[in-house]
Computed example of a mutant assay.
Amino acid sequence: MGRMEKIWGKDCWEFQPKRWLKDGVFQQESPFWYPIFQAIPRICLGKDMAYIQMRSIAATLIERFEIDVLNKDTFPGYIQSLTLRMKGGLPINVYHRT
C-alpha cells in the first residue's frame, strides 16, 4: 500500500513530504489511512500490574532496609539488550533498619 499509485498518485515512488502540507502547514493524515502504522495505541497488557508490584516491593524494601549506594560519584555504564541494564550492576550496602 505504501507505493500504490491509486492512493499516492503518479509519483508514488518518490519521497514527497509536501504531500502532507496544505498551505505550508503540516496536516496529519488519518491513522486509519495507512494500516501498516496501526491506528490503535499499543500498550503492554501487564504494565499496570507490573507497576503495582514494583511499588509494593520498593515500599517493602525501603521500610525494612537502609540502602547505601557505593561509588556515588561515578555514573554506571549501560548494556544494551532487550531491557536496558547497568554494566557491572549497582554496588550497594544493605543494612537492616532497627
Rank of each mutant, 00 (worst) to 15 (best):
A50G: 00
Q28H: 10
R64S: 11
F26E: 04
Q28P: 04
A58G: 09
F32P: 01
I79Y: 10
S56F: 12
G88V: 03
P76C: 12
D23E: 14
V94K: 02
T98C: 09
Q16H: 11
I52F: 05
G24H: 03
Y78Q: 04
Q28N: 08
L84V: 00
Q53N: 13
D73M: 06
A58E: 10
D48M: 03
P91W: 02
F75E: 14
P31D: 08
K72G: 03
W33C: 11
K47W: 08
K47G: 04
L45W: 08
G2R: 04
L82N: 06
I52V: 14
T60M: 11
V25F: 03
G77Y: 11
L82I: 15
R42I: 15
W20R: 03
I43L: 13
G77F: 05
P35C: 01
K72N: 03
P17M: 13
H96R: 12
D68Q: 05
R55K: 14
L90G: 04
P35D: 00
V94Y: 07
M49E: 11
W20A: 00
M1K: 10
K72M: 09
R85D: 15
P35A: 06
I57D: 06
I7Y: 09
I79G: 05
K87T: 01
A58C: 11
N71Q: 07
L61K: 01
W8K: 02
K87D: 06
N71S: 03
S30N: 01
Q16F: 02
M1F: 09
L90A: 10
K47E: 14
D48N: 13
K72C: 05
E66R: 12
Y95K: 15
R3M: 10
D68S: 05
R42G: 07
L82G: 07
K6L: 14
P35M: 00
R85L: 11
G24S: 00
I43Y: 01
I52N: 00
Y95V: 09
S30H: 00
Y51A: 00
R97N: 00
K22R: 09
W13P: 02
Q27L: 07
V25H: 12
M86N: 05
C12E: 07
F75N: 12
I57G: 07
A58P: 02
W8R: 03
F26A: 03
P17D: 15
V69W: 00
P41Q: 12
V69N: 05
G88Q: 06
W8Y: 15
I36F: 15
M86W: 08
E63N: 10
